[in-house]
Amino acid sequence: MDLDQSKEDFYAKRKNRNFWLAICLGGFILVIFLVTIAKLSNGGMIEGFDHTLRPSISKE
């Protein structure tokens, strides 16, 4: 394989890898957003430090 071809292959692989990394990051942001919405829409009695519902602090 000559150097030009090798360089071309090098950049093609890097471009492809960066593309999929961007997709993964985008997907990750979407998952965080959706989980946040889901947790908040569970409503009300959520304790701050670990975002977990605590029946012990419900209004009843």
Binding site: D2, L3, S6, K7
Partner: peptide, 16 residues
Amino acid sequence: VENEITLIEASTQDYI
């Protein structure tokens, strides 16, 4: 020498 050089870069498939 240039003909001997190959640039190695891992692809997405390799990481998968």
